[in-house]
């Protein structure tokens, strides 16, 4: 009696504590979900698989992690340069961690369809591994089922099979006037103005710093809320990109602010000067950072307001709601 063939591993893996992987035997595909103490299996026989759909995802979250990794590496270099090697090495480890997290962000998604279920394959998250895995599975399925020719598909379509026109399953897009976006771009301009005043004054002022901090926090809040609100809305693409750019630049701004503050403090400490707020404000690195800060808030705020104005002009205002004088059904159902 010949021993049963062992499972062959397919490329792709996901998860740390709960891990997903795909394995294959000559007649079926095995999806494995494993925790440290057990494994759960799901089998898909090649004769039953109807379709595999692979979709590329933007994977934009990876760029946030890469940006964080680059910034942290910069901070690490500054720390080592300022004769703080231990802190520098620790910071470098965090930078490597950020880079690895960026590397793990999925850039594709794959699902498998049978006649009774449509299941996602969580282990297929990266395009290169996905293409390799899909090619292996496809060849095995075609050994069992045969290949589907283009002519067959055309004949199927001509016979009226599958009403899958691109418009019949569109997700609804809601109308959104963009009130949060107006507030976001307004708060960005306000923050740019307050920061410019602080920079021009050149002296530390507690009330102005509090106002600048509050406007910065408000900007972040409005940006996050706007990003959620604009999802699946009819807002102009340009406006949406400005919000996304604001979030990216805000993250970079926070990291850069942290790095510059540490750098200025360490330099002042090395030169035996007391590192008070005023001294940090007057440091050339901090001045350069403030110019960058004011510039991007100002530029993005202006672009956002201009795009919002153009969007409002291009969007027709709906007619006012006319309330009928006919009495409707009352609360008592009459």
């Amino acid at each position: 009696m010949t021993p049963a063939p062992e499972y062959r591993r397919l490329p792709g893996r996901s998860g740390l504590l709960i891990r997903h992987s795909l394995w294959m035997k000559p007649d079926h595909l095995l999806r494995v979900r494993a925790n440290p103490f057990s494994q759960q299996y799901r089998r898909y026989y090649f004769a039953d698989i109807q379709a595999l759909v692979l979709t590329e995802l933007p994977g934009s979250a990876a760029y946030y992690w890469y940006a964080a990794a680059v910034s942290l590496s910069l901070i690490s270099a500054l720390l080592v340069n300022s004769r703080h090697p231990v802190l520098g090495v620790l910071d470098g480890i965090v930078a490597v961690l950020a880079f690895s997290l960026g590397w793990r962000v999925p850039n594709c998604s794959c699902y498998l369809r049978t006649s009774v279920a449509t299941d996602r394959l969580p282990s297929i998250r990266h395009l290169r591994a996905a293409r390799h895995a899909v090619a292996m599975v496809t060849s095995e399925i075609e050994k069992v089922q045969g290949a589907l020719s283009r002519e067959t598909l055309d004949a199927y379509q001509a016979a009226g099979g599958s009403g899958a026109t691109p418009t019949n399953a569109l997700l609804p897009i809601s109308h959104y006037g963009g009130q949060l976006h107006w507030m976001l771009f307004g708060s960005m301009l306000f923050h740019a103005a307050v920061s410019a005043v602080i920079g021009i004054m050149g002296t530390y002022s507690t009330p102005l710093s509090i106002v600048a901090g509050a406007s910065s926090a408000a900007t972040l809040l409005f940006a996050v809320l706007s990003a959620f609100k604009q999802h699946r809305s009819d807002l102009a693409r340009g406006v949406r990109w400005v919000v996304v750019s604001t979030l990216v630049l805000y993250a970079l701004d926070v990291i850069a602010s942290f790095a510059v503050s540490i750098y200025a403090s360490l330099q002042l400490a090395a030169s035996k000067k007391p590192p008070d707020a005023q001294a940090i404000l007057n440091h050339p690195a901090f001045k350069a950072f403030r110019v960058f800060d004011v510039t991007w808030f100002l530029v993005l705020g202006c672009i956002g307001l201009v795009l919002m104005t153009l969007h409002r002009r291009s969007t027709p205002t709906p007619p006012p709601l006319v309330i009928s004088e006919n009495p409707g059904i009352g609360a008592d159902g009459t």
């Binding site: 379709a51 759909v53 979709t55 995802l57 998604s109 794959c110 699902y111 369809r113 006649s115 009774v116 449509t118 996602r120 589907l148 283009r150 598909l153 199927y156 379509q157 099979g161 599958s162 009403g163 899958a164 026109t165 691109p166 019949n168 399953a169 569109l170 997700l171």
Partner: peptide, 20 residues
């Protein structure tokens, strides 16, 4: 299930012309 395949990002149907 109906013989419709959908985009896994937005849920829109994939037309038959795009299959294979």
């Amino acid at each position: 299930a109906s013989q419709t395949l959908v985009c896994s990002k937005c849920g829109a149907a994939i037309p038959v012309e795009d299959w294979n």
